[in-house]
């Protein structure tokens, strides 16, 4: 069972690599090296802040774009091209296919993030000539970004299991934007009354809480991240992604592949 998931994940990773998804690293490298050189020339004492802010935001955005645009086609493209027929006519259960696809894309994003992280630390070393103790928090920010990818990948897969790629992209991107402002949504829910309060509260808890996962600004200002937040975000991301993945499995298990 687990070996089949591993084979599907490995093939999904191979597809991403062969489709030149990792070429985004070139754009990232150019952006970051250009920014580091530029920042070194025009800013005084805030080089680190700019590089961390810019670097981590780029890591997040590049990854989100990959997660959405690959994730939305993970199932629907296989149905449309009928490549799924020769997979599901083998001893592969439908849930194994979904889970394998999830791990394949999550693995791709992990490798992508790892390589980008090397770039961020390289740029950091270039502008400040040495690492500081507070730079360790950049690793935590990167970890949260990976958790963000895990949630988005699961959501894209959920939409891909029942919708067209275009609609899936719209849904996933909309959830990402709303989720990025989920703290504001919760704030609004707290001051709202009556039906609006209940609707806003429901929406606030339904959309993924990407606000809590975004610690880029804090890290850039060398503020420590609490262990409690790390624990909370880890549990939240795992539970949210698992639920989205379960939804994808339930839908896909009952879907006719016409």
């Amino acid at each position: 069972m687990s070996t089949r998931i591993g084979h599907i994940a490995a093939n999904t990773f191979r597809e991403a690599v062969r489709d030149r998804v990792l070429y985004n690293l070139i754009a990232f490298a150019l952006l970051l090296s250009g920014a580091a050189i530029l920042v070194g020339q025009i800013s005084i004492d805030i080089e680190r802040l700019v590089v961390i802010n810019l670097g981590l935001t780029a890591v997040s955005l590049f990854g989100i774009v990959i997660a959405i645009f690959i994730g939305i086609g993970l199932v629907s493209k296989e149905i449309e091209k009928r490549t799924l027929y020769t997979v599901l006519s083998r001893p592969v259960r439908r849930w194994e296919f979904i889970v394998g696809k999830f791990f394949g894309l999550a693995g791709t994003l992990f490798v992508n993030t790892f390589l980008m992280a090397i770039g961020v630390f390289g740029a950091l070393l270039y502008v400040s000539r040495h690492f500081q103790r507070a730079d360790a928090w950049v690793l935590v920010a990167l970890y949260f970004i990976i958790l963000e990818f895990v949630i988005i990948t699961a959501l894209a897969l959920l939409f891909s299991s029942f919708s067209s790629p275009l609609l899936s992209a719209v849904f996933a991107f909309a959830l990402f934007v709303i989720g990025s402002f989920s703290e504001d949504l919760r704030g609004f829910a707290a001051i709202a009354h009556g039906v609006t309060h209940w609707l806003a509260t429901g929406a606030a808890y339904l959309v993924p809480n990407f606000s809590a996962l975004n610690v880029i600004s804090s890290v850039a200002h060398q503020q420590p991240i609490s262990g409690h937040l790390i624990l909370y975000n880890t549990a939240y991301a795992l539970i949210y992604a698992t639920m989205a993945l379960c939804g994808a499995v339930v839908i896909f298990e009952h879907r006719d592949l016409k």
Binding site: N11, R14, E15, R18, D19, K81, R82, T83, Y85, T86, S89
Partner: peptide, 12 residues
């Protein structure tokens, strides 16, 4: 199983 007009992962 051979499906009708099969299509495979063309990057492989």
């Amino acid at each position: 199983f051979l499906p009708e007009q099969p299509y495979f992962y063309d990057y492989l």
